[in-house]
Design a protein around this nucleic acid. Structure first.
Length: 370
DNA sequence: AACTCGGGGCG
DNA sequence: CGCCCAGAGTT
């Protein structure tokens, strides 16, 4: 009965918002309750920038240790711009969404070359930098430069959907545009950065996804969803597609005390990271799996190897993929001319390469078995 | 507008 | 287990 399409809804701010009440009460709460976070010690645009990139789709507690290490290693735009790409990727290892790291360095080099190392403070300039989308542009401009720009992330979407009883699907891009227009109307002059952070802080600490803590909410009085008792039904969000299963045969090819590793292409999934060679296959029988793996090693690495026995199975789920990995112990037989992206390394050397978590699981087992 | 792109924490 | 996280780039 209920179709997917719905009449377009428009929202206006209740009168209370216009008399500074909402912004004043939210900021007062933020001034007293804000967390002590490492990117809040000053307003250095580069420090804010790095934090915002790391925080994309990533929790504060996860980011903290990476942030400390990253700022230690790359303290300035120039330090990041001049660093080897491999080192930047290594600093990102385990954090996920690795294109963030590559784009961040690309943008740092752009800032050094085109803007004299100064992060631009104009929306139309900063938005051209790789990895800086609508949210991150608004966050840097408001927090570092006090520009009155909205910074609408998942927290702000949730907070506003409840405040204004919005039933739009927050998974849709059009909804973010609506919320940006609404936020723009309530940014207090001179405190844009704190206000945007206060909205996010509220979403992170009080107006949380499940079981929002309305009794301690500083803007309880303004919330239309709470007024109707529907705060736990909001926001509306369409369901994501389940991850697609992928079956992989993985080779641990040993040659004396070395293991064959392969560097993934510099585009696409896990770009530029190292892995144990593997091949996608829906083969059913062990013999068929062994043959496919052996053929793949010959075709891709010009190598004869014997696929001996199963070592372990590894499951790993991404947002859109589910890897079923069957790992095989293999022995190198012959073949010396490895392609450029492949190397034999010792177990100790593996830890200096940048590996995705799924392959770290394999490396750990090899180390524990030796 | 839909898809790709990681990994972990929590109820 | 499903959901969500200070989203952006590509098609």
């Amino acid at each position: 009965m209920t179709g997917k399409k719905r009449k377009t809804l428009t929202y206006t701010l209740p009168e209370e918002f216009h008399v500074f009440g909402f912004s004043r009460d939210l900021l007062a709460w933020y001034d007293g309750q804000k967390r002590d976070l490492p990117w809040r010690i000053n307003r250095d645009p580069y420090r804010i920038w790095v934090s915002e990139i790391m925080l994309q789709q990533t929790r504060v507690e996860t980011v903290k240790p990476y942030y400390y290490a990253f700022m230690e290693k790359f303290p300035t735009v120039e330090a990041l711009a001049d660093a080897p790409e491999e080192e930047v990727l290594k600093a990102w290892e385990g954090l996920g969404y690795y294109s963030r790291a590559r784009n961040l360095q690309t943008a740092a080099r752009e800032v050094k070359a085109r803007y004299g190392g100064i992060v631009p403070d104009k929306p139309e300039e900063i938005s051209t930098l790789k990895g800086i989308g609508p949210y991150t542009a608004g966050a840097i401009l408001s927090i570092a430069y006090e520009k009155p720009e909205p910074a609408v992330d998942g927290n702000v979407m949730r907070v506003f959907s409840r405040l204004l009883y919005m039933t739009d699907d927050i998974a849709k891009p059009a909804t973010r545009i609506k919320v940006e227009h609404l936020v723009r109307q309530v940014i207090p002059v001179g405190r844009a950065g704190d206000f945007n952070q206060a909205l996010m802080e509220l979403g992170a600490l009080v107006c949380v996804p499940r079981t929002p803590q309305c009794l301690t909410c500083p803007v309880f009085d303004y919330c239309l969803a709470r007024r109707e008792g529907v705060q736990e039904e909001l926001p509306v969000k369409g369901k994501a597609k389940p991850p697609r299963p992928v079956h992989l045969q993985v080779a641990v090819v040993r040659r004396e005390n070395h293991v064959l590793m392969n560097k993934r292409p510099d585009q696409g999934l896990l770009a530029g990271m190292w892995e144990f060679p593997m091949v996608e296959s829906d083969a059913e029988t062990p013999a068929a799996k062994q043959e496919i793996l052996q053929d793949s090693l010959r075709n891709r690495f010009g190598m004869d190897a014997e696929v001996l026995e199963p070592l372990m199975e590894v499951q790993h789920t991404f947002s859109h993929l589910h890897w079923n990995m069957e790992v095989w112990r293999c022995d190198w037989i012959e073949g010396e001319a490895l392609p450029a992206q492949a190397r034999f390394v010792t177990l100790d050397e593996i830890s200096s390469l940048t590996l995705p978590v799924a392959h770290q699981k394999i490396a750990e087992k090899l180390k524990s078995d030796q």
